[in-house]
Design a protein around this nucleic acid. Structure first.
Lengths: 204, 204
DNA sequence: ATGTTATGTAGACGCTTGTTTACTTGCAAC
DNA sequence: GTTGCAAGTAAACAAGCGTCTACATAACAT
Protein backbone atom coordinates (compact mmCIF):
# COMPACT_ATOMS: atom_id res chain seq x y z
CA UNK A 1 0.00 0.00 0.00
CA UNK A 2 2.69 2.48 -0.86
CA UNK A 3 0.45 5.21 -1.96
CA UNK A 4 1.40 8.75 -2.50
CA UNK A 5 -0.82 10.91 -0.41
CA UNK A 6 -0.90 14.12 -2.34
CA UNK A 7 -2.46 17.38 -1.45
CA UNK A 8 -5.38 18.30 -3.63
CA UNK A 9 -4.09 20.63 -6.29
CA UNK A 10 -0.54 19.47 -6.02
CA UNK A 11 1.60 18.30 -8.89
CA UNK A 12 -0.19 15.08 -9.71
CA UNK A 13 -0.74 14.62 -13.40
CA UNK A 14 -3.61 12.28 -14.03
CA UNK A 15 -4.19 11.14 -17.56
CA UNK A 16 -7.73 12.30 -17.22
CA UNK A 17 -7.49 15.92 -16.30
CA UNK A 18 -10.68 17.83 -16.52
CA UNK A 19 -9.10 21.24 -16.28
CA UNK A 20 -6.39 20.50 -18.80
CA UNK A 21 -8.87 19.15 -21.31
CA UNK A 22 -11.10 22.13 -20.83
CA UNK A 23 -8.17 24.40 -21.43
CA UNK A 24 -7.13 22.55 -24.56
CA UNK A 25 -10.62 22.90 -25.96
CA UNK A 26 -10.75 26.58 -25.11
CA UNK A 27 -7.40 27.23 -26.75
CA UNK A 28 -8.34 25.27 -29.84
CA UNK A 29 -11.58 27.22 -30.05
CA UNK A 30 -9.76 30.53 -29.71
CA UNK A 31 -7.37 29.68 -32.52
CA UNK A 32 -10.01 28.32 -34.85
CA UNK A 33 -12.60 31.02 -34.26
CA UNK A 34 -9.87 33.54 -34.82
CA UNK A 35 -8.93 31.99 -38.09
CA UNK A 36 -12.28 31.06 -39.59
CA UNK A 37 -14.98 32.84 -37.64
CA UNK A 38 -17.90 31.33 -35.82
CA UNK A 39 -19.64 29.72 -38.75
CA UNK A 40 -16.43 28.52 -40.29
CA UNK A 41 -15.64 26.33 -37.33
CA UNK A 42 -17.41 23.13 -36.33
CA UNK A 43 -17.49 21.54 -32.93
CA UNK A 44 -15.78 18.54 -34.45
CA UNK A 45 -12.92 20.71 -35.69
CA UNK A 46 -12.44 22.15 -32.24
CA UNK A 47 -12.45 18.74 -30.64
CA UNK A 48 -9.99 17.39 -33.18
CA UNK A 49 -7.60 20.29 -32.65
CA UNK A 50 -7.86 19.84 -28.90
CA UNK A 51 -7.42 16.10 -29.25
CA UNK A 52 -10.57 15.62 -27.25
CA UNK A 53 -13.87 13.94 -27.86
CA UNK A 54 -16.55 15.92 -29.61
CA UNK A 55 -19.04 15.48 -26.82
CA UNK A 56 -16.72 17.08 -24.32
CA UNK A 57 -17.12 20.44 -25.97
CA UNK A 58 -20.78 20.50 -25.10
CA UNK A 59 -20.20 18.85 -21.78
CA UNK A 60 -17.74 21.49 -20.60
CA UNK A 61 -19.16 24.57 -22.26
CA UNK A 62 -22.82 23.80 -22.73
CA UNK A 63 -22.99 24.80 -26.35
CA UNK A 64 -20.91 26.07 -29.20
CA UNK A 65 -22.30 29.57 -28.72
CA UNK A 66 -21.43 29.58 -25.05
CA UNK A 67 -17.92 28.45 -25.87
CA UNK A 68 -17.66 31.29 -28.34
CA UNK A 69 -18.72 33.69 -25.65
CA UNK A 70 -16.08 32.36 -23.29
CA UNK A 71 -13.41 32.73 -25.95
CA UNK A 72 -14.51 36.27 -26.56
CA UNK A 73 -14.34 37.06 -22.87
CA UNK A 74 -10.69 36.04 -22.82
CA UNK A 75 -9.79 38.29 -25.71
CA UNK A 76 -9.66 41.73 -24.26
CA UNK A 77 -6.18 42.92 -25.15
CA UNK A 78 -7.61 46.01 -26.72
CA UNK A 79 -8.88 47.09 -23.33
CA UNK A 80 -5.38 48.00 -22.24
CA UNK A 81 -4.83 49.75 -25.53
CA UNK A 82 -7.80 52.03 -25.09
CA UNK A 83 -7.04 52.81 -21.48
CA UNK A 84 -4.54 55.58 -20.93
CA UNK A 85 -4.27 59.25 -21.64
CA UNK A 86 -6.93 60.36 -24.11
CA UNK A 87 -4.58 62.49 -26.17
CA UNK A 88 -2.50 59.50 -27.17
CA UNK A 89 -5.45 57.30 -27.96
CA UNK A 90 -5.28 57.60 -31.75
CA UNK A 91 -1.63 56.64 -31.78
CA UNK A 92 -2.16 53.77 -29.39
CA UNK A 93 -4.93 52.44 -31.58
CA UNK A 94 -2.74 52.81 -34.64
CA UNK A 95 0.12 50.99 -32.97
CA UNK A 96 -2.25 48.26 -31.91
CA UNK A 97 -3.47 47.92 -35.48
CA UNK A 98 0.07 47.67 -36.83
CA UNK A 99 0.97 45.21 -34.13
CA UNK A 100 -1.90 42.99 -35.20
CA UNK A 101 -0.62 43.04 -38.74
CA UNK A 102 2.73 41.74 -37.62
CA UNK A 103 1.41 39.05 -35.37
CA UNK A 104 -0.84 37.36 -37.86
CA UNK A 105 -2.60 34.37 -36.50
CA UNK A 106 -2.35 35.35 -32.88
CA UNK A 107 -4.89 38.10 -33.31
CA UNK A 108 -8.04 36.13 -32.89
CA UNK A 109 -10.34 39.00 -32.21
CA UNK A 110 -10.60 41.12 -35.29
CA UNK A 111 -10.82 38.17 -37.61
CA UNK A 112 -13.43 36.71 -35.39
CA UNK A 113 -15.78 39.58 -35.79
CA UNK A 114 -16.46 39.69 -39.45
CA UNK A 115 -17.62 36.18 -40.10
CA UNK A 116 -19.36 35.55 -36.82
CA UNK A 117 -22.87 36.79 -36.68
CA UNK A 118 -24.83 33.80 -37.77
CA UNK A 119 -27.27 32.91 -35.11
CA UNK A 120 -28.97 35.79 -33.30
CA UNK A 121 -27.54 34.41 -30.11
CA UNK A 122 -23.99 34.93 -31.33
CA UNK A 123 -24.85 38.34 -32.65
CA UNK A 124 -25.97 39.24 -29.17
CA UNK A 125 -22.68 38.06 -27.70
CA UNK A 126 -20.68 40.01 -30.25
CA UNK A 127 -22.75 43.09 -29.78
CA UNK A 128 -22.14 43.18 -26.08
CA UNK A 129 -18.47 42.56 -26.57
CA UNK A 130 -18.06 45.41 -29.01
CA UNK A 131 -20.20 47.68 -26.94
CA UNK A 132 -18.55 47.00 -23.60
CA UNK A 133 -14.96 46.44 -24.64
CA UNK A 134 -14.46 48.82 -27.54
CA UNK A 135 -17.10 51.45 -28.06
CA UNK A 136 -17.94 52.30 -24.51
CA UNK A 137 -14.32 52.64 -23.31
CA UNK A 138 -13.55 54.87 -26.25
CA UNK A 139 -16.60 57.02 -25.61
CA UNK A 140 -15.49 57.38 -22.03
CA UNK A 141 -12.29 59.00 -23.21
CA UNK A 142 -13.91 61.50 -25.51
CA UNK A 143 -14.98 65.05 -24.91
CA UNK A 144 -17.25 67.11 -27.07
CA UNK A 145 -20.38 66.36 -29.04
CA UNK A 146 -21.28 63.16 -30.86
CA UNK A 147 -18.83 61.14 -28.82
CA UNK A 148 -20.54 57.91 -29.71
CA UNK A 149 -20.60 58.68 -33.41
CA UNK A 150 -16.88 59.38 -33.30
CA UNK A 151 -16.21 56.16 -31.43
CA UNK A 152 -18.19 54.27 -34.05
CA UNK A 153 -16.05 55.75 -36.80
CA UNK A 154 -12.93 54.56 -35.03
CA UNK A 155 -14.52 51.16 -34.62
CA UNK A 156 -15.09 51.15 -38.34
CA UNK A 157 -11.36 51.26 -38.95
CA UNK A 158 -10.72 48.59 -36.35
CA UNK A 159 -13.33 46.24 -37.67
CA UNK A 160 -12.53 46.87 -41.30
CA UNK A 161 -9.06 45.53 -40.76
CA UNK A 162 -10.35 42.00 -40.41
CA UNK A 163 -12.02 41.54 -43.78
CA UNK A 164 -9.33 43.46 -45.60
CA UNK A 165 -6.61 41.36 -44.10
CA UNK A 166 -8.47 38.14 -44.62
CA UNK A 167 -9.54 38.78 -48.17
CA UNK A 168 -6.89 41.00 -49.64
CA UNK A 169 -3.94 39.95 -47.56
CA UNK A 170 -1.67 42.28 -45.74
CA UNK A 171 1.63 41.84 -47.39
CA UNK A 172 1.20 45.14 -49.13
CA UNK A 173 0.48 46.78 -45.83
CA UNK A 174 3.40 45.19 -44.09
CA UNK A 175 5.64 46.08 -46.96
CA UNK A 176 5.18 49.76 -46.26
CA UNK A 177 7.38 51.46 -43.73
CA UNK A 178 5.86 50.60 -40.34
CA UNK A 179 6.51 54.05 -38.93
CA UNK A 180 4.83 55.69 -41.86
CA UNK A 181 1.94 53.26 -41.65
CA UNK A 182 1.51 54.05 -37.99
CA UNK A 183 1.52 57.77 -38.73
CA UNK A 184 -1.09 57.30 -41.38
CA UNK A 185 -3.32 55.25 -39.13
CA UNK A 186 -2.85 57.72 -36.33
CA UNK A 187 -4.10 60.44 -38.63
CA UNK A 188 -7.08 58.31 -39.56
CA UNK A 189 -8.00 57.64 -35.95
CA UNK A 190 -7.46 61.28 -35.11
CA UNK A 191 -9.81 62.31 -37.89
CA UNK A 192 -12.38 59.90 -36.53
CA UNK A 193 -12.05 60.87 -32.89
CA UNK A 194 -11.19 64.57 -32.81
CA UNK A 195 -13.74 66.75 -31.02
CA UNK A 196 -14.31 68.69 -34.20
CA UNK A 197 -13.65 67.67 -37.78
CA UNK A 198 -9.91 68.06 -38.19
CA UNK A 199 -10.11 70.09 -41.33
CA UNK A 200 -12.48 71.12 -43.99
CA UNK A 201 -10.87 69.97 -47.13
CA UNK A 202 -11.72 71.47 -50.49
CA UNK A 203 -14.69 69.63 -51.90
CA UNK A 204 -14.30 68.06 -55.29
CA UNK B 1 -35.77 27.11 -84.09
CA UNK B 2 -36.95 30.65 -83.79
CA UNK B 3 -40.09 29.95 -81.94
CA UNK B 4 -40.69 33.49 -80.81
CA UNK B 5 -42.96 35.02 -83.34
CA UNK B 6 -43.66 38.00 -81.16
CA UNK B 7 -41.59 41.06 -80.64
CA UNK B 8 -39.30 40.65 -77.71
CA UNK B 9 -40.59 42.68 -74.85
CA UNK B 10 -44.08 42.84 -76.22
CA UNK B 11 -47.12 42.84 -73.99
CA UNK B 12 -47.74 39.15 -73.62
CA UNK B 13 -47.69 38.08 -70.04
CA UNK B 14 -47.39 34.36 -69.76
CA UNK B 15 -47.94 32.85 -66.41
CA UNK B 16 -44.70 31.02 -66.85
CA UNK B 17 -42.12 33.61 -67.60
CA UNK B 18 -38.57 32.44 -67.45
CA UNK B 19 -37.01 35.88 -67.45
CA UNK B 20 -39.39 37.26 -64.85
CA UNK B 21 -38.81 34.32 -62.56
CA UNK B 22 -35.10 34.59 -62.99
CA UNK B 23 -35.27 38.26 -62.13
CA UNK B 24 -37.39 37.63 -59.06
CA UNK B 25 -34.86 35.12 -57.82
CA UNK B 26 -31.97 37.46 -58.49
CA UNK B 27 -33.67 40.31 -56.68
CA UNK B 28 -34.56 38.13 -53.73
CA UNK B 29 -30.98 36.91 -53.57
CA UNK B 30 -29.64 40.45 -53.69
CA UNK B 31 -31.87 41.54 -50.82
CA UNK B 32 -31.23 38.49 -48.68
CA UNK B 33 -27.48 38.32 -49.25
CA UNK B 34 -27.35 42.00 -48.45
CA UNK B 35 -29.16 41.48 -45.22
CA UNK B 36 -27.71 38.24 -43.91
CA UNK B 37 -24.59 37.50 -45.91
CA UNK B 38 -23.80 34.43 -47.90
CA UNK B 39 -23.92 31.86 -45.13
CA UNK B 40 -26.96 33.40 -43.52
CA UNK B 41 -29.09 32.79 -46.56
CA UNK B 42 -30.35 29.43 -47.80
CA UNK B 43 -31.47 28.55 -51.27
CA UNK B 44 -34.87 27.80 -49.83
CA UNK B 45 -35.10 31.28 -48.35
CA UNK B 46 -34.30 32.82 -51.70
CA UNK B 47 -36.87 30.70 -53.46
CA UNK B 48 -39.51 31.53 -50.88
CA UNK B 49 -38.86 35.25 -51.14
CA UNK B 50 -39.01 35.04 -54.92
CA UNK B 51 -42.13 32.89 -54.74
CA UNK B 52 -40.42 30.34 -56.89
CA UNK B 53 -39.56 26.71 -56.51
CA UNK B 54 -36.32 25.85 -54.79
CA UNK B 55 -35.01 23.84 -57.70
CA UNK B 56 -35.30 26.80 -60.02
CA UNK B 57 -32.50 28.58 -58.22
CA UNK B 58 -30.08 25.91 -59.24
CA UNK B 59 -31.67 25.51 -62.62
CA UNK B 60 -31.25 29.15 -63.55
CA UNK B 61 -28.00 29.97 -61.81
CA UNK B 62 -26.22 26.66 -61.55
CA UNK B 63 -25.37 26.95 -57.90
CA UNK B 64 -25.76 29.17 -54.88
CA UNK B 65 -22.21 30.41 -55.26
CA UNK B 66 -22.73 31.30 -58.89
CA UNK B 67 -25.89 33.18 -57.98
CA UNK B 68 -23.93 35.08 -55.37
CA UNK B 69 -21.38 36.00 -57.98
CA UNK B 70 -24.09 37.30 -60.27
CA UNK B 71 -25.56 39.39 -57.47
CA UNK B 72 -22.16 40.80 -56.76
CA UNK B 73 -21.63 41.67 -60.39
CA UNK B 74 -24.76 43.79 -60.32
CA UNK B 75 -23.62 45.78 -57.33
CA UNK B 76 -21.00 48.10 -58.63
CA UNK B 77 -22.29 51.52 -57.67
CA UNK B 78 -19.02 52.33 -56.03
CA UNK B 79 -17.31 52.21 -59.40
CA UNK B 80 -18.81 55.52 -60.34
CA UNK B 81 -17.86 56.90 -56.96
CA UNK B 82 -14.21 56.11 -57.36
CA UNK B 83 -14.03 57.39 -60.91
CA UNK B 84 -13.51 61.11 -61.23
CA UNK B 85 -10.85 63.61 -60.35
CA UNK B 86 -8.34 62.14 -57.90
CA UNK B 87 -8.25 65.20 -55.66
CA UNK B 88 -11.91 64.84 -54.77
CA UNK B 89 -11.73 61.11 -54.18
CA UNK B 90 -11.68 61.25 -50.37
CA UNK B 91 -14.75 63.43 -50.29
CA UNK B 92 -16.59 61.32 -52.84
CA UNK B 93 -15.87 58.22 -50.80
CA UNK B 94 -17.06 59.98 -47.66
CA UNK B 95 -20.25 61.10 -49.34
CA UNK B 96 -20.82 57.60 -50.61
CA UNK B 97 -20.37 56.25 -47.11
CA UNK B 98 -22.87 58.72 -45.67
CA UNK B 99 -25.28 57.98 -48.47
CA UNK B 100 -25.15 54.32 -47.61
CA UNK B 101 -26.01 55.14 -44.04
CA UNK B 102 -29.13 56.93 -45.12
CA UNK B 103 -30.31 54.30 -47.50
CA UNK B 104 -30.26 51.40 -45.11
CA UNK B 105 -31.38 48.17 -46.62
CA UNK B 106 -30.69 49.16 -50.19
CA UNK B 107 -26.98 48.90 -49.66
CA UNK B 108 -26.51 45.25 -50.23
CA UNK B 109 -22.83 45.39 -50.91
CA UNK B 110 -21.08 46.38 -47.77
CA UNK B 111 -23.22 44.22 -45.59
CA UNK B 112 -22.63 41.40 -47.94
CA UNK B 113 -18.93 41.46 -47.52
CA UNK B 114 -18.43 40.83 -43.87
CA UNK B 115 -20.35 37.63 -43.43
CA UNK B 116 -19.67 36.04 -46.76
CA UNK B 117 -16.46 34.13 -46.96
CA UNK B 118 -17.54 30.64 -46.13
CA UNK B 119 -16.55 28.38 -48.92
CA UNK B 120 -13.23 29.06 -50.64
CA UNK B 121 -15.16 29.48 -53.84
CA UNK B 122 -17.08 32.42 -52.44
CA UNK B 123 -13.94 33.91 -50.99
CA UNK B 124 -12.49 33.82 -54.46
CA UNK B 125 -15.50 35.67 -55.87
CA UNK B 126 -15.34 38.30 -53.16
CA UNK B 127 -11.62 38.72 -53.55
CA UNK B 128 -11.89 39.44 -57.22
CA UNK B 129 -14.73 41.84 -56.65
CA UNK B 130 -12.82 43.83 -54.05
CA UNK B 131 -9.69 43.75 -56.09
CA UNK B 132 -11.20 44.77 -59.41
CA UNK B 133 -13.94 47.11 -58.29
CA UNK B 134 -12.48 48.85 -55.27
CA UNK B 135 -8.78 48.47 -54.67
CA UNK B 136 -7.51 48.55 -58.20
CA UNK B 137 -9.52 51.61 -59.29
CA UNK B 138 -8.36 53.46 -56.23
CA UNK B 139 -4.76 52.52 -56.82
CA UNK B 140 -5.08 53.78 -60.36
CA UNK B 141 -5.92 57.22 -59.00
CA UNK B 142 -3.02 57.44 -56.60
CA UNK B 143 0.42 58.90 -57.05
CA UNK B 144 3.39 58.36 -54.84
CA UNK B 145 4.79 55.36 -53.02
CA UNK B 146 2.86 52.53 -51.39
CA UNK B 147 -0.21 53.25 -53.44
CA UNK B 148 -1.64 49.84 -52.78
CA UNK B 149 -1.10 50.06 -49.07
CA UNK B 150 -2.94 53.37 -49.02
CA UNK B 151 -5.80 51.95 -51.04
CA UNK B 152 -6.06 49.08 -48.59
CA UNK B 153 -6.37 51.51 -45.71
CA UNK B 154 -9.22 53.26 -47.46
CA UNK B 155 -10.82 49.87 -48.09
CA UNK B 156 -10.55 49.22 -44.40
CA UNK B 157 -12.87 52.12 -43.69
CA UNK B 158 -15.27 51.06 -46.41
CA UNK B 159 -15.43 47.47 -45.29
CA UNK B 160 -15.56 48.28 -41.60
CA UNK B 161 -18.80 50.11 -42.12
CA UNK B 162 -20.66 46.87 -42.70
CA UNK B 163 -20.02 45.13 -39.39
CA UNK B 164 -20.34 48.34 -37.41
CA UNK B 165 -23.66 49.13 -38.94
CA UNK B 166 -24.96 45.62 -38.66
CA UNK B 167 -23.85 45.01 -35.12
CA UNK B 168 -23.87 48.38 -33.46
CA UNK B 169 -26.50 50.09 -35.49
CA UNK B 170 -26.11 53.41 -37.12
CA UNK B 171 -28.61 55.58 -35.40
CA UNK B 172 -25.85 57.31 -33.51
CA UNK B 173 -24.03 57.96 -36.73
CA UNK B 174 -27.09 59.27 -38.49
CA UNK B 175 -27.89 61.42 -35.49
CA UNK B 176 -24.75 63.44 -36.03
CA UNK B 177 -24.77 66.36 -38.39
CA UNK B 178 -24.37 64.85 -41.87
CA UNK B 179 -22.12 67.63 -43.08
CA UNK B 180 -19.84 67.23 -40.11
CA UNK B 181 -19.86 63.46 -40.53
CA UNK B 182 -18.88 63.85 -44.15
CA UNK B 183 -16.06 66.18 -43.22
CA UNK B 184 -14.82 63.74 -40.66
CA UNK B 185 -14.91 60.82 -43.08
CA UNK B 186 -13.24 62.93 -45.75
CA UNK B 187 -10.41 63.57 -43.33
CA UNK B 188 -10.19 59.86 -42.59
CA UNK B 189 -10.02 58.92 -46.26
CA UNK B 190 -7.53 61.71 -46.87
CA UNK B 191 -5.32 60.40 -44.10
CA UNK B 192 -5.49 56.98 -45.67
CA UNK B 193 -4.85 58.04 -49.23
CA UNK B 194 -2.56 61.08 -49.07
CA UNK B 195 0.80 60.60 -50.81
CA UNK B 196 2.57 61.21 -47.54
CA UNK B 197 1.29 60.85 -44.00
CA UNK B 198 -0.77 63.96 -43.44
CA UNK B 199 0.83 64.90 -40.20
CA UNK B 200 3.05 63.56 -37.55
CA UNK B 201 1.08 63.88 -34.41
CA UNK B 202 2.70 63.97 -30.97
CA UNK B 203 3.08 60.45 -29.73
CA UNK B 204 1.52 59.54 -26.45
C1' DA C 1 -57.24 18.79 -80.95
C1' DT C 2 -52.56 17.03 -80.68
C1' DG C 3 -47.70 16.72 -79.80
C1' DT C 4 -43.60 19.04 -78.20
C1' DT C 5 -41.03 21.80 -75.46
C1' DA C 6 -39.99 24.84 -71.88
C1' DT C 7 -41.34 25.93 -67.16
C1' DG C 8 -42.49 24.77 -62.69
C1' DT C 9 -43.02 21.24 -58.88
C1' DA C 10 -42.50 17.68 -55.25
C1' DG C 11 -39.61 14.98 -53.07
C1' DA C 12 -35.67 12.64 -52.09
C1' DC C 13 -30.49 12.33 -52.14
C1' DG C 14 -26.18 12.53 -49.51
C1' DC C 15 -23.94 15.18 -46.37
C1' DT C 16 -22.90 18.09 -42.41
C1' DT C 17 -24.30 20.43 -38.46
C1' DG C 18 -24.90 20.84 -33.03
C1' DT C 19 -26.33 18.07 -29.57
C1' DT C 20 -27.52 14.00 -26.67
C1' DT C 21 -27.52 9.29 -24.99
C1' DA C 22 -25.66 5.03 -23.45
C1' DC C 23 -21.58 3.12 -22.58
C1' DT C 24 -16.53 2.27 -21.31
C1' DT C 25 -12.49 3.29 -18.81
C1' DG C 26 -9.10 5.36 -15.69
C1' DC C 27 -8.30 6.88 -11.01
C1' DA C 28 -8.55 6.96 -6.11
C1' DA C 29 -10.64 5.77 -1.67
C1' DC C 30 -11.93 1.90 1.05
C1' DG D 1 -8.99 -6.43 -4.74
C1' DT D 2 -13.41 -3.95 -5.00
C1' DT D 3 -16.30 -0.17 -5.43
C1' DG D 4 -17.78 4.53 -6.83
C1' DC D 5 -17.42 8.24 -9.50
C1' DA D 6 -15.55 11.37 -12.68
C1' DA D 7 -13.57 11.55 -17.38
C1' DG D 8 -13.71 10.11 -21.85
C1' DT D 9 -15.82 7.66 -25.85
C1' DA D 10 -18.70 5.99 -29.75
C1' DA D 11 -22.70 6.25 -31.98
C1' DA D 12 -26.83 8.01 -32.94
C1' DC D 13 -30.20 11.82 -33.08
C1' DA D 14 -33.02 15.38 -35.47
C1' DA D 15 -32.55 19.18 -38.29
C1' DG D 16 -30.77 21.72 -41.96
C1' DC D 17 -28.04 22.30 -45.97
C1' DG D 18 -27.19 22.44 -51.43
C1' DT D 19 -28.30 19.78 -55.10
C1' DC D 20 -30.53 16.60 -58.29
C1' DT D 21 -34.06 13.59 -60.42
C1' DA D 22 -38.51 12.27 -61.94
C1' DC D 23 -42.77 14.06 -62.81
C1' DA D 24 -46.71 17.49 -63.80
C1' DT D 25 -48.30 21.32 -66.36
C1' DA D 26 -48.75 25.43 -69.09
C1' DA D 27 -47.84 27.44 -73.64
C1' DC D 28 -47.00 27.28 -78.27
C1' DA D 29 -46.64 25.11 -83.31
C1' DT D 30 -48.89 22.25 -86.05
Amino acid sequence: MTRVEQEPGSARRPKRDREATRRRILNAARDLFGEHGYDGVTVRMIAARAEANTALVNRYFGSKAALFGEVLAGESVIRGVIAGDPGGLPRRLAEHFVRLLDQGSVTAMSRMLDRSAGQPEVKEILLHYLEDVIVEPIVAQLDGPDARARALLASTIIMGGGPVRRLLGLNDLRAADPAELTDRLTAMFTAALAPLPTSRLPAS
